[in-house]
């Protein structure tokens, strides 16, 4: 219920998603993934993180990841009110 309210009230705003990918990605991917920020994890993985306007944009990103053969480890939805820093704590729980 709470989630639903959240997404309804934020319907006009983008939601923030984090994609965890195996291997360290270079910063040059920023444009390719239309503004997702790349952060590198110590365990050798990368986080692509940023606002995604809707579900079809989300699938567009997944397709790009697929087409580059990047091994995808997890996708997480993040509360857009949280700051955009990376932290290992947010994304490792569903691996």
């Amino acid at each position: 219920m709470e989630n639903e309210q959240q997404s309804n009230s934020d319907a006009k705003q983008s939601l923030v998603y984090t994609f965890k990918i195996k291997g360290h990605l270079g910063q040059q991917w920023l444009n390719w993934f239309e503004g997702l920020a790349v952060t590198l994890e110590e365990d050798g993985n990368s986080l692509l993180r940023g606002p995604v306007i809707d579900q079809s944009a989300l699938y567009g990103i997944l397709k790009k990841i697929r087409d580059l053969g990047m091994p995808l480890l997890s996708v997480n939805f993040t509360d857009s009110n949280q700051p955009l820093e990376s932290g290992t704590g947010e994304v490792n729980d569903d691996l």
């Binding site: 990918i21 291997g23 990605l25 050798g44 990368s46 053969g69």
Partner: peptide, 12 residues
């Protein structure tokens, strides 16, 4: 020994 995504490393 490098952690980079394979394609990044090799394509470059």
């Amino acid at each position: 020994g490098d952690h980079r995504y394979i394609v990044d490393y090799l394509a470059e």
